[in-house]
């Protein structure tokens, strides 16, 4: 296995970061790390906070880059090759395209069980991921078992 993709949802999914680094190192694979500025999330956050959508997207993107560079820092210490990406749009469409175009062999995603609307949204996104993304997916349950 040469290409592993870690989809970074937030800084709270660190167990998936560790798992991705461990597997990439073990297999000498390149770790692709992807953060997505999801258009629906931007709309929701902007509306909740009463902010402009463009400013909100900028803030979310910059936060994403920080996660990516923190991960990269950890990867360098582990001697793991990394490539960082930020994309903007619909999460499932981007993941599907990214996996296909780059011949990703394993997608790793962290999942923290949540309640209420937010929890259901993540559950739905993971269901769609399983349905549409054409590669094996490892869902790392944060703070628990896989």
């Amino acid at each position: 296995m040469e290409k592993i993709l870690l989809y970074i949802i937030s800084g709270e999914t660190r167990a998936s970061w560790d798992r991705a680094l461990e597997i990439s190192k073990g297999l000498s694979a390149t770790l692709y790390a992807l953060f997505i500025v999801d258009k629906d999330l931007v709309k929701t956050v902007a509306s909740m906070k009463g902010l402009d959508e463009i400013d909100t997207a900028v803030q979310i993107e910059e936060e994403g880059w920080k996660y990516l560079y923190y991960l990269e820092d950890m990867a360098v210490n582990e001697g793991v090759k990394t490539a960082l990406f930020v994309e903007e749009g619909d999460t499932i469409d981007i993941l599907r395209r990214f996996v296909k175009e780059r011949n990703i062999e394993l997608l790793i995603v962290g999942h923290r069980s949540g309640q209420g609307v937010e929890g259901r949204k993540v559950e739905r996104m993971i269901q769609q991921m399983i349905e549409y993304v054409q590669c094996p997916i490892l869902i790392e349950k944060e703070g628990g078992k896989r």
Binding site: V58, E61, W65, K66, Y69, D73, L84, V86
Partner: peptide, 10 residues
């Protein structure tokens, strides 16, 4: 360092 990298990348 990470803040500056993130800002420039963005």
């Amino acid at each position: 360092y990470i803040q500056v990298l993130a800002r420039i990348s963005r």
